[in-house]
Each structure stands twice: as C-alpha cells, then as structure tokens.
C-alpha cells in the first residue's frame, strides 16, 4: 500500500508536538525575565532568578532533601528489588506466578491513597521519624521500576553461564556479583535512573509524609506557588528539566529510549 501520510495528519502531529514542547519553552522564557512577575516573552534577560533559588533557604534545604531521598530511597529499593527480580527470573518453578504482580502494587494502588495510608499507619501509627517514613515510602513507590526494569534485563540473561561457574566451584554469591550483575548492568542503571526521577518528582506520597522542618522540592514548589508568583518557580522548574535531560541521556545510553515505548 505504502501510502504517504495525509498532510492534514502531519499538520495535526506538528500541532501536538508544539502543544507538548511549547509550555516548557514558556517556562524557560519566563525564568529569564528581568521582571518581578511571570511574563512571556521575557522582558530583559537576567539570571537573577537562578541565583535566587540558592538564596531562599527553603529551596536550598528541600533540593538537598529531595536528592538525598531519591538516591537513598532508590538504593534501598534496589537492594530489595534486585534479589526479588533475580528470584523471579531464576526460580520460575519455585515461586508462584502472582508474585510478580505483588511488586507492581505500588503503581496499581492510587498513589494518594498510599500516601494517606502510610501517614496514618507508619508516620503517626508507628511513630517513625519523618525522614524514615519518607525513605520507606519512596523505596516502596519506586519498587516496581527496580523489579520490572532489572527483571527485563534478567529475563534476557542466560543462567546456564551462572550454573557453569557454580558447578566449577564458584560460591553462589560470588557468581551473582561477578557474573550476573555485570551482565544486567544496563537494566540496573536504567532502573535506578527511572526510579530516581519518579522519586524526585513525587507529590502524592510526599505531601502526606513531609512535616515540620522536613519537606521535598515538589512540595516546597507547591507551597511557594500559593504565596509568591515570581520567576523563581520557573527557574527551579528549569533546573528540574536539566535533571530530566541527564536522565534521558543515561536511559538512551543504557537501554535506548525506545525501551520506553514498550
């Protein structure tokens, strides 16, 4: 058949992509404006609002907290999720089929319900400190990414290589670290980075678990927006877009971005 795509359809797709990219361009523009209010196109050019991010202590603090939380939560989740993914791929007969679905429950249950329930049972019920609750909440939230993305790599791994090492006398733990892990490195990096960005951007779980003195960047942004409407929010947003660019570069290098269309 090999018909060409109808020009109207192409025009429609162009409009869609303008719709997708336009608002982000507008944010970048407003962040550079030399005015105390948000305006586009920017009037005058300044980097003042970027400097302002670091002058507002609440932003300084929450940026640190958010990054620490994203790294810590993802690390915990990986330490728990990688063995689970390994077991799922390696011991298909020994483990029940539904177990794979148990690990994706954090995506299936509405995030805001999860946040509310964690606040009630863990933060207030069990009286855990704010940072501990946040770490556990985020580790849980990103578990599906850790298990699924690493699992995809593990499913492509030929376990007979590991068996060969073990039968030649290599201890199991050593075979895991020296043979299995290096072979699924791409999956681990991509999983880590997707989990990291999910944690960094999270609102619905964090909003229930943050408390006096401890907040995350997205929650601080929400609070800031309700009081001030200056270009600082735009510059923080641009900062977060830079993180997104970094994340995309890493995913592209490890699994390829087409991984995300599957």
């Amino acid at each position: 058949m090999n018909t060409r795509t109808h020009p109207l359809l192409v025009a429609f797709a162009v409009l869609t992509f303008l719709f997708l990219v336009g608002p982000l361009v507008i944010i970048i523009g407003t962040s550079l404006s030399d005015t105390a209010f948000l305006t586009f196109p920017p009037e005058g050019l300044t980097l003042h609002w970027y400097q302002n991010i670091f002058e507002i202590s609440a932003f300084r603090r929450t940026i640190m907290t958010s990054f620490a939380l994203a790294v810590g939560g993802t690390a915990i989740s990986m330490m728990i999720g990688v063995p689970a993914a390994y077991a799922l791929a390696r011991y298909r007969v020994e483990l029940p089929k539904f177990l794979g679905n148990v690990y994706v429950l954090p995506i299936l249950i509405p995030e805001i319900v999860l946040g509310f329930s964690l606040m009630k049972s863990v933060a207030i019920g069990a009286g855990l400190p704010i940072m501990t609750s946040l770490l556990l909440g985020h580790a849980l939230l990103v578990l599906p990414y850790c298990v699924r993305v690493v699992g995809a790599s593990l499913n492509a791994f030929d376990f007979s290589i590991e068996d060969a090492a073990v039968s030649l006398g290599c201890p199991r733990w050593k075979a895991f670290f020296t043979i299995v892990l290096p072979n699924v490195k791409a999956g681990i990096i991509a999983g880590f980075i997707l989990a990291f960005i999910t944690s960094l951007n999270d609102v619905s779980v964090s909003i229930f678990l943050t408390g006096p003195g401890v907040s995350t960047l997205p929650i601080q942004l929400l609070a800031h927006m309700e009081q001030f409407f200056d270009p600082t929010i735009a510059s923080v947003s641009v900062l977060l877009m830079f993180v997104t660019v970094g994340v995309m570069a890493i995913v592209e290098r490890t699994l390829g971005l087409t991984f995300l269309t599957k």
């Binding site: 330490m79 063995p83 020994e94 429950l105 009630k120 849980l140």
Partner: peptide, 24 residues
Amino acid sequence: RAWALSAPAILLVTCFLLLPVFST
C-alpha cells in the same frame, strides 16, 4: 533460596502497602 531472596521485597510491600491500605 527463591523465597529468601524474595522475602525483603514481600516484607516491604506487606508492611508498607498491604497492611496500611487494608487498615484504611
């Protein structure tokens, strides 16, 4: 071995998702 490797993840989901959500 399979269950021991899965235990931490099952524990995390049970303690911090299933129990809290059921309690809600």
